[in-house]
């Protein structure tokens, strides 16, 4: 009862903290000066059509590097928590197990290459259309999930995952250092030609960086999914 009252008080306090926001926020016709300068300068300076991508990869590139690192830490944490759990008490009674039906297996075999190609398409075209490394990585992780569910892939090789992740993370930092050496600063993508806006090879190193992010995110989320999946108990 006391706890309930306390939560109610907390929600009311949240409302009180929010009240000035409700009073002042309204429809605006303009954006902040920083955003305005991004909108005006970024397309010409970087040659990338999607400004969200420019902000993520270039202007807030260090943020993204840290964010991918946090993702790596969380993924490692999930694997660590489940690695103890899996082997300790499993196998006493086999979980009732239904193999995926033949339709699912065949359909997954047809769909999986399409899904992976789609994921790669999303992160390679991240600087032109909505999408990018994070979305493409998630699509690839969903493809891995489908492969695991349909039994196309029974065991995910963790060595391969960690190698992929390591290489893409090191590549990310290396591209950033190349920007420091050849262009304006850390993670400056302009050491490659910026090209013409709207073509695939434009935006300097933005597609390279975003592809590396895509591979890294895909490997990390596949690791999380594989760690959380209940192991099929084999007699």
């Amino acid at each position: 009862m006391f706890k309930r009252l306390f939560s109610l008080v907390l929600v009311v306090a949240l409302a009180a903290a929010f009240f000035p926001l409700f009073a002042t926020i309204g429809d605006r016709g303009d954006v902040s000066p920083l955003a305005e300068s991004y909108l005006a300068d970024a397309p010409d300076a970087l040659g990338s059509a999607n400004l969200v991508t420019s902000v993520i990869v270039t202007y807030r590139g260090l943020d993204t590097l840290g964010e991918v690192t946090v993702l790596f830490a969380a993924s490692a944490g999930v694997s660590l928590v489940f690695s103890r759990l899996g082997s300790s008490s499993d196998g006493r009674r086999p979980v009732q197990n239904h193999a995926p039906s033949e339709l699912v297996v065949t359909g997954a075999g047809l769909l999986l290459p399409l899904i992976f190609v789609f994921g790669v398409f999303i992160f390679v075209h991240g600087h032109l259309t909505p999408g990018g490394g994070f979305q493409g990585g998630v699509v690839i992780a969903s493809g891995v999930l489908l492969a695991l569910l349909a039994g196309t892939l029974t065991e995910l090789s963790h060595g391969m995952l960690s190698v992929l992740e390591m290489l893409s993370g090191a590549g990310y930092v290396a591209v950033g250092l190349l920007g420091l050496w050849l262009a304006g600063g850390f993670l400056d993508p302009r050491f490659l030609p910026t090209g013409e806006i709207g073509s695939l090879f434009s935006g300097g190193a933005i597609p390279v960086i975003y592809s590396l992010v895509g591979i890294k995110v895909g490997a990390e989320l596949s690791g999380v999914i594989d760690a959380m999946r209940r192991r099929r108990v084999v007699e």
Binding site: H98, S101, L110, L111
Partner: peptide, 20 residues
């Protein structure tokens, strides 16, 4: 093509798991 492939497949899997 994607809808043609995925929609019946996912519904089949859903119905089968519901039956199980």
């Amino acid at each position: 093509l994607f809808i043609f492939l995925t929609n019946p497949l996912s519904s089949h899997a859903l119905a089968r798991s519901a039956h199980i």
